[in-house]
Write a protein that binds this DNA or RNA. Structure first.
Lengths: 219, 219
DNA sequence: TCTCCATATGTAAATATTTATATATAATAA
DNA sequence: TTATTATATATAAATATTTACATATGGAGA
């Protein structure tokens, strides 16, 4: 039931077509949401049937007509009450982290390859977001305007950026850890292979201490 | 198609019933995945039909029989090849961050209330995870054993912990930002309300500079 | 010239996910 | 005493999501 709120939220700022909404999902909103056109179009129909949005056709030359949606007062009530409602409990799905969890099934070199690859994927996302931050800030400076809208976008953008930076950093740390512990994989091809604990003890002790100390780090 | 890999991955470590798998999803695996029993049971049936797992009934007294699943060689091939396959592009769904994105629609006080509430939710998750880290480390020290399996779990656990710590920190920072910029909300009830930019300029400049500098922070 | 991409709308079919319901026992908490 | 929680299985119905198909034009690049 969140796609409807993604759409209503967008339409509370600007009028837009389904196609426009999809572009927003692929661009800025990809920090926290994504969807397909084949889900957006039917959802817009539902919202219109419920009178939370209205639409009008805007003809264009050479291209299909734009079906531009606007939010109604009912739609504004709906999005406002959702924004103020108790947040859902976090429901995380991170398929890469799941792959990592099961990577004892492959060789240390393959683990490192996967981590490096994914680090690159995240770096690309980060580069794009940095571009967005830059542009957002320049536009704020140019227009000399600050609003709650811009403030909340900035906060979300920052969260998105942090997430990328920190995932990348974790990839680096994990690569270093696996690199240092390669011998754990080498002793045996069976997944139960074990090395005398002392070989990895100091490293893991540091790792666990660092993990447990995370909360007290100052930014 | 990832639930099947979550299940196969687990069964590559231990035999388990659907109920056991659900508990693991709610516990450790909640760092990166979640599911319902009503999805797990049919999926186990499918996996059995494809001969990636087998099952046997283990009678119990007073309680329903346990239907214990084991992975087959075919299942091990499937999970191994998935773990080594190119990771999916990140597909994030964070409904709270979406709420934040649209919070210019509610009052500054309500924004702060929502952020504080969610910070508490994340803190609770963090406390539980810290417990898990503590236990994991104690068990490693006690058993004097280190394996690829434990190493990868440690890395995932650390990622989970970091994620909570950093989300909490972001909530704190965002609360401070909104607190400092409350006046942006007060001038007008319309969403287009604007304050002379200078009032917020220095603060936002710092915020944007900090955001753009994120990548270069040293841990 | 031909193919791909962007613009723009959608439908159909296949999957995946969530919520509700059903059954049964034992222990624990209010 | 009554309600809830934990153990265990599972189905049914409702939603949500993804992938594939279908149509149409104009522009950019190979």
């Amino acid at each position: 039931m969140t796609l409807r709120h993604a759409i209503l939220g967008l339409l509370s700022k600007w009028d837009a077509t389904g196609y426009d909404i999809k572009k927003e999902f692929d661009d800025f909103m990809s920090i926290f949401w994504h969807s397909h056109l084949s889900q957006i179009y039917p959802e817009l129909n539902k919202l219109e049937a419920e009178e939370l949005v209205t639409s009008r056709l805007v003809p264009q030359e050479g291209k299909p007509d734009r079906k531009v949606y606007s939010i109604t007062n009912g739609g504004i009530d709906e999005i406002t009450s959702w924004v103020g409602a108790p947040p859902d409990i976090p429901k995380i799905k991170d398929s890469f982290l799941m792959q990592v969890f099961f990577m004892d099934n492959i060789s240390a070199d393959d683990v490192i390859f996967q981590l490096k690859y994914y680090q690159g994927v995240r770096q690309k996302r980060l580069d794009e977001m940095k571009q967005t931050v830059q542009e957002a800030w320049e536009s704020i400076v140019e227009r000399q305007i600050m609003t709650p809208r811009l403030l909340m976008s900035s906060a979300v953008l920052r969260r998105g950026l942090e997430q990328e930076v920190q995932y990348i950093r974790w990839c680096e740390e994990t690569i270093a850890l696996v690199e240092a512990c390669k011998s754990l994989w080498d002793t045996d091809t069976s997944p139960d292979s074990v090395l005398p604990f002392n070989d990895a003890k100091e490293l893991m002790e540091n790792y666990y201490n660092a993990t447990l100390a995370l909360e007290n780090d100052e930014a």
